[in-house]
Every structure is written in C-alpha cells, then in structure tokens.
C-alpha cells in the first residue's frame, strides 16, 4: 500500500497530521501497537523537522508485508554537517520551533532510535531526503 502526503511550509499547527494519518492506517491493518509507536515517533520527528527546518516537502509511505518504508523529501536549505546533526543535543532550530517543544537536538537521534533502517542525504541549497524503515 502506498500513501503520499504533502507537508506545507511553516504550518506549525498542522505538523504531525501525516504521521497521525499513517498511524491510523497501520492500526486499521492490525499492526502491533509497539511497532506502530516506533513508526509514528520516527515519522513525526521527521515531519516536524520538515516544517521547522525546510520549506515543507513530500512524504511517501510504502507499507510492505515485512516493513514500512518512509521517504521524506524536501527542497529546503540542506544540512551542512550531517554527523553533527545526528548528535543528541545539537540543534539549529528557531525560537518558534522551540516554542513548539522541539529543537532540543533530539530529532534525528529519535528517528535513528526508532527505525530499523535510517538514511539521510542532504545537499546545502538543494534539500534533504530522509529514509526510514521499520520492520513489521
């Protein structure tokens, strides 16, 4: 099953709607709650990052018999130092993002912690692609 969502730039109030929709579908499919939680956390963190760091983007979700694969693609500013961005506590988030309860430098570590496969590709000035897979 393939699902696709558009995440809009600066839509702070709507950030998380795509993750919520995917969570609902997985629940309907009977996926165990702990697995759904892993997928929801990883995707939600990635979706929040897309809103607060990039200018929105597209989320493609592929629900396969043995795993859920999520690809988040944006055309935002890109990440100059990915290894630094993976560190717990490192953040370049704005005050607006911090007001939301994010921007504490836990986003990418949380994605990695909750995924069975994680990959991030980024080019400054062009954008970032995050790939997350969770085994079912």
């Amino acid at each position: 099953m393939k699902l696709s969502y558009t995440v809009l730039e600066g839509e702070y109030a709507r950030a998380g709607e795509a993750s919520s929709a995917v969570k609902k579908v997985l629940k309907q499919l009977g996926v165990p709650a702990p697995v759904i939680r892993k997928i929801a956390i990883a995707m939600y963190e990635a979706e929040i990052n897309m809103v607060i760091h990039a200018n929105g983007g597209v989320v493609d979700v592929d629900i396969l018999p043995d795993k859920v694969f999520i690809q988040l693609t944006d055309t935002g500013p890109g990440i100059p130092d990915i290894e630094m961005a993976k560190r717990e506590g490192f953040s370049t988030a704005s005050d607006e993002a911090r007001d939301l309860g994010f921007g504490a430098g836990m986003g990418i570590p949380n994605m990695i912690r909750n995924s069975d496969f994680f990959n991030i590709k980024s080019e400054v000035g062009k954008g970032t692609t995050v790939e997350i897979a969770v085994n079912l």
Binding site: Y12, A13, A15, G16, S19, S20, K23, R37, A40, I41, Y44, E45, I48, D99, L100, G101, F102, G103, A104, G105, M106, G107, P109, N110, R113
Partner: peptide, 28 residues
Amino acid sequence: SDVLAFSAGHALLLTGLINLQAIRTAEM
C-alpha cells in the same frame, strides 16, 4: 522530543506546553 525519546509506556503526560503538538505527541 524528550517525551518522544524517553517516555515509552507512560500513559499520562504532565506539561506546561500548551499547543497542538502536546496532543499530537501524546497521540504518537
């Protein structure tokens, strides 16, 4: 993000953060 990282299995969230993301975090 701390809730998402460290609170698996907890059923109740106490917070001073009043916005939609507090609800979405609880939902996730």
